[in-house]
């Protein structure tokens, strides 16, 4: 990521989130997100190929996330909108490759993660899978 892009990303993130919430480097964005229920999650976004490829998004705390039945969300799952986890961390789906372009900024990814977390908490409460609420792009 160029220095200029890094500055733009920081500026846009700071407009949407408190600068105390996140740490941004050219390789990684780490951000703490609090849901409406006041639970706090830590999210890491790998930026190795950003902005030219869809960044990997991991929930690093709690580690791993579990579904309503207590099973770790470490496998790719269409209903739960997850990908195969790494290092014990749940990896979540957000933008698809065909939707992704370098004009997508990290704050937009984080807002999608924030929404994913609300729908995840609804899953814990109701048992409904995430794909009941989050529509799916046609690609794989």
């Amino acid at each position: 990521m160029t220095e200029e892009r890094l500055k733009d990303e920081f500026y846009l993130l700071s407009q949407a989130f408190s600068v105390k919430q996140f740490k941004l480097t050219s390789n990684t964005l780490t951000i703490a997100l609090q849901t409406n229920s006041k639970k706090i999650y830590t999210v890491r976004i790998d930026l190795a190929e950003h902005p030219y490829a869809v960044p990997k998004v991991f929930i690093t705390s709690p580690k791993p996330l579990c579904d309503r039945l207590g099973n770790a969300l470490l496998n790719a799952s269409h209903p739960m909108h997850t990908l195969t986890g790494e290092n014990g961390c749940t990896r979540i789906c957000h933008y698809g490759p065909s939707q992704w372009h370098p004009g997508v900024y990290l704050y937009q990814v984080v807002v999608k993660v924030r929404i994913w977390l609300e729908v995840y908490e609804n899953h814990l409460k109701t048992g409904y899978p995430l794909d009941k609420y989050l529509s799916t792009a046609p690609e794989r």
Partner: peptide, 15 residues
Amino acid sequence: GIKATEIAKKDYYSY
């Protein structure tokens, strides 16, 4: 605040 609707409407992909 952030108008999240437009971002929320972007499809999530499966796997």
